[in-house]
């Protein structure tokens, strides 16, 4: 599948070139460390190096404070990794965000994932001020304007525009379900060229979403990567379901974990099966592995699912 996207886009992005080549890509999330030591970042990246096409550095996900996505991307880009900068609208206003986009592009980061971000209430600093000056859609439009028109939101000219490959997130599993494909269309209209979804544990619901997506022709205008990840146990699945916003885990998945002798292994088995089922759905360009605190297992999961990535 080749999507029709702006020729200006993603000039500096190896990730964009791989997607355009038609390869079924693998991206993975790296949880930034609570540390100023670069080695702590490198140690996590090495675990992913051989099996992923690009690494997402999360931006204070769950509203918990960690090393910035910008810091991680800068470190990893220097080491030759293909990185995806995540920008959430929760902590910075339009002035800070546009400055960060220029800074990231100058350091060689070629991809940016535009997110609204989780609310501050659920994180480790519930007393912080939530910013939300932009939202994911207006953020996409802002970065696209910087790239394609060479201007800030204010209209001021940018000497060398950032050549970013633009991404968005979508959650096909959260209500209102029938609005979700239209919301993806809105993000594409605002500039999204790739999309990474929330965790998929409910394949039939994804199939329905993709039916609507294909009907709207969205898979031809944007590369769609499906979020997957291993559940560590039935207990942790229950905790995630009630505490992590937007993660939908059907009862049958939890029952299957409970009924197994080795829950951790079963969690990985389920993840691998989901990847294999996802691959069969037309219009999907790759997977996005989010293995929080289980980064060490990503390589095994990707290999067992029969996916072999190009070296980053």
């Amino acid at each position: 599948m080749t999507a029709e996207i702006s020729p200006l886009s993603g000039e500096g992005s190896r990730f964009a070139r791989l997607l355009r080549s038609g390869k079924f890509v693998v991206t993975a999330e790296l949880a930034p460390p609570d540390s100023a030591d670069p080695e702590d970042t490198y140690r996590r990246a090495v675990l992913l190096a051989d099996v992923v096409d690009a690494i997402n550095a999360t931006d204070a996900s769950g509203a918990n404070c960690h090393m910035s996505s910008m810091g991680v991307c800068a470190l990893l880009t220097r080491e030759g990794y293909e990185t995806i900068l995540q920008i959430s609208c929760r902590d910075r206003n339009r002035i800070a965000i546009q400055g960060d986009v220029l800074g990231a592009a100058a350091m060689g980061v070629g991809n940016v994932l535009c997110l609204t971000g989780d609310g501050v209430k659920i994180g480790d600093h519930p007393d912080a001020k939530p910013v939300f000056d932009l939202d994911s859609v207006s953020l996409l439009e802002a970065v696209r304007k910087m790239r394609d028109e060479g201007r800030f939101l204010s209209g001021r000219v940018i000497a060398a525009p950032p050549r970013m490959f633009l991404g968005a997130a979508e959650n096909p599993f959260a209500p209102p379900l029938d609005f979700r494909p239209m919301r993806l269309a809105k993000k594409i209209a605002a500039g999204a060229q790739f999309v990474q979804t929330q965790y998929c544990f409910d394949v039939p619901r994804l199939v329905e979403f993709m039916d609507a997506v294909r009907q709207l022709g969205l898979h031809q205008r944007c590369f769609i990567l499906i979020g997957v990840g291993p559940l560590a146990s039935a207990r942790s699945a229950r905790w995630i379901r009630s505490n992590v916003p937007g993660v939908h885990i059907p009862d049958h998945v939890i029952k299957r974990l409970e009924g197994s002798a080795d829950e951790r292994r079963e969690g990985r088995r389920i993840c691998i099966e989901i990847i294999q089922q996802v691959r069969e759905i037309p219009g999907i360009a790759g997977i996005h592995v989010m293995a929080y605190r289980q980064e060490g297992w990503v390589a095994e999961i990707v290999r067992e699912a029969g996916l072999c990535a190009s070296p980053t």
Partner: peptide, 21 residues
């Protein structure tokens, strides 16, 4: 909306349609 979203729902909407926050 607690996140002042003007472009559609965030990804955190609960299965019962409740607000994330």
């Amino acid at each position: 909306c607690p996140k002042k979203m003007r472009n559609g729902p965030c990804g955190g909407v609960r299965q019962d349609g409740g607000c994330e926050l």
